[in-house]
Amino acid sequence: MLAGVTVPFVLLNDLYPFFRFGMFAEPVARAVQTENFLLGYTDVSGKTHFVQPAGVGLRSLPYLMRNYYYRGEAETFLRNIHRLHPKKNQIAGWQLLRVTSPTEVYRPDTVLAGRYPISR
């Protein structure tokens, strides 16, 4: 048990069911940019809607958006999201947006990180 608790601390990584506790350990520089991802869809009338994590039943949605984006799998991510969305028929296309801004001054810079048009 003691070894199990110690190994994640040494390896700086969770080895479930044992955990590493590195939250709030890194000092945050004021100049650092925050990064957020937004998930949105355009409905058949052309109106854009943004989706909250609760809307797709995924608390880890922010992590999934970031991870799929950095792995270069944004389209796969959007296709999967489309599959689990309850109002598929009303959706014309999905977009993944990457928003970066400095922490102190809210001056966001938004780029389209992924697109998944629905073909009918």
């Binding site: 003691l2 590195g22 709030f24």
Partner: peptide, 18 residues
């Protein structure tokens, strides 16, 4: 002891990383 070690690790993480 495990509980104490976990809290110690959370503190050490801050000293070793930050």
């Amino acid at each position: 002891l495990v509980t104490g070690i976990v809290y110690l690790q959370t503190g050490l993480e801050k000293l070793l990383i930050g």
